[in-house]
């Protein structure tokens, strides 16, 4: 039996309206053969967790350019844990100062991509780091 397709959700948390990057990354991942869901703008963290649960995704890519990353990522990680979804791989990208990155990794964010990252690098990283989650019975 072949493995099912890896399913990724690209999400825009909070009020940040910059969606150029999120859409370009979503499309590149789709073109690379992943199953991709894009949440659209203005999602609360609870909505993102709920969507991840319902859609049974393997990874969540958070795009954030508003400066709220030090609130958004830790809160998301906490709520995923509470929902029993801590095996979902979380990665992110946007306007994020370098010295915040270790702190984000400490709370469990797997990777942060900065402006100027080639799409191919993101696609490769997802290929290597995201596997279909085991089906829970």
């Amino acid at each position: 039996m072949s493995e099912r397709k890896v399913k990724i959700m690209i999400a825009k948390p909070g009020l940040d309206g910059h969606d150029r990057g999120a859409k370009v990354v979503a499309r590149a991942l789709r073109d690379a053969g992943f199953e991709v869901i894009y949440t659209g703008l203005h999602q609360s963290i609870d909505q993102i967790v709920q969507a991840a649960l319902e859609e049974d995704v393997d990874a969540i890519g958070i795009s954030i350019l508003s400066g709220a990353h030090m609130y958004v990522f830790p809160t998301l990680m906490q709520k995923l844990k509470e929902a029993g979804l801590d095996d979902i791989v979380v990665f992110g990208g946007g306007i994020i100062p370098l010295d915040d990155i270790p702190k984000l990794k400490e709370v469990g964010v797997k990777e942060i991509f900065l402006p100027g990252t080639p799409l191919e690098e993101i696609v490769e990283w997802v290929r290597n780091n995201v596997k279909p989650r085991p089906v829970k019975l």
């Binding site: 009020l15 940040d16 203005h42 609360s44 508003s66 400066g67 709220a68």
Partner: peptide
């Protein structure tokens, strides 16, 4: 961002965004 979207600083959606951008 909260101001741009017509939300008060104590709105739940404003968490983490107050005074940032």
């Amino acid at each position: 961002f909260p101001t741009l979207y017509g939300r008060d600083s104590d709105d739940p959606m404003s968490r983490g965004e107050v005074g940032k951008c």
